[in-house]
Amino acid sequence: MCLLALGWMHHPRWRLVMAGNRDEFHARPTAALAPWQDETSVIGGRDLRSGGGWAGVGASGRMAVVTNVRDPLAAQTGPSRGALVADFLRGRDPAAVHIDRLATVAGAYAPFNLLLADSDSLEYLGNHPAERQTLGPGVHGMSNGALDAPWPKTRRLMAALEAWLQKDGGGAAEAAAPGAGPLLHPPYYGPPPPDLTPLWNALADEHRPADSDLPDTGIGLERERWLSPAFIRGDDYGTRASTVLLIDADGHGEIHERRFGPQGAPSGQSHVIF
């Protein structure tokens, strides 16, 4: 992921709600959101170059999401950051135990922010700079800087999620987007599906803030401007996927993905109920 907002223990129905965008080179091979063939309890998109993931769910509603930290002077070597997601989702250790163990080896990885959640806690680990937190109820945001750094696009997505969480989370099912693929889920007889339209709209936001509000991450003003919207368009690099994840108190929920090609052209969507 490169941008996300996450609501934790902040809604009467959903224990966790996450909305985020993955920005990546369009040429990087990627598998669409689905249960993983080699570990069907893991559901998410998958990076086919390294075998890891950027966001997903595992058994009993375990959640993991990772972002890189933007620093052109930092070393970009080390193990795949996607493995940080995959290893937790495949495992069974509590989030707090797993992340404490990771903290001892986090320096070996290129800069990252990592969020892990289980039924009991939401845990954060960053390695640039080194930071470890157990997060409380509320809305948290993360992009390619520090946790809850007030980047304009992070603040806008957090505000949109906060507004959505203030509603009851119910409503009519959304219509399938043009060119959508099949819905990957069994028959569902629970409460009515939530109306995710406000979250999709927030993830598609192309607002560019004033130069004075932009962070300075060492990449120059023109690139800061280009990377400043929630949704990024480009021929070679841009937003590849938007994801919305909802998990209830029992560890059940749904995960949605909308995919995009060069210049933001829609390329499909998936939806899994677990």
Rank of each mutant, 00 (worst) to 15 (best):
residue 197 T to I: 02
residue 152 P to S: 10
residue 66 V to P: 03
residue 240 R to H: 02
residue 37 Q to F: 00
residue 5 A to C: 09
residue 135 L to G: 03
residue 113 N to M: 09
residue 197 T to Q: 12
residue 108 A to L: 12
residue 85 V to R: 10
residue 252 H to K: 05
residue 80 S to M: 08
residue 79 P to W: 04
residue 225 R to I: 15
residue 220 G to Q: 06
residue 243 T to L: 13
residue 36 W to K: 01
residue 9 M to P: 00
residue 244 V to T: 06
residue 47 D to E: 08
residue 44 G to T: 06
residue 60 S to M: 14
residue 83 A to I: 02
residue 187 P to G: 05
residue 13 R to F: 01
residue 228 S to N: 05
residue 75 A to L: 14
residue 6 L to Q: 07
residue 134 T to L: 00
residue 171 G to A: 00
residue 117 A to P: 04
residue 58 G to C: 11
residue 183 L to Y: 01
residue 73 L to C: 01
residue 161 L to K: 02
residue 246 L to H: 00
residue 167 K to N: 08
residue 84 L to K: 11
residue 228 S to V: 13
residue 169 G to K: 03
residue 176 A to S: 13
residue 109 Y to C: 00
residue 118 D to R: 07
residue 106 A to Y: 01
residue 142 M to N: 06
residue 159 A to I: 01
residue 250 D to R: 11
residue 93 D to P: 00
residue 270 S to L: 03
residue 177 A to D: 12
residue 35 P to V: 07
residue 18 M to I: 12
residue 6 L to P: 04
residue 110 A to F: 00
residue 224 E to A: 14
residue 5 A to Q: 02
residue 186 P to L: 14
residue 204 A to T: 08
residue 103 A to M: 05
residue 151 W to L: 11
residue 193 P to T: 02
residue 265 A to N: 03
residue 154 T to F: 11
residue 58 G to A: 12
residue 221 L to N: 06
residue 16 L to K: 01
residue 16 L to I: 14
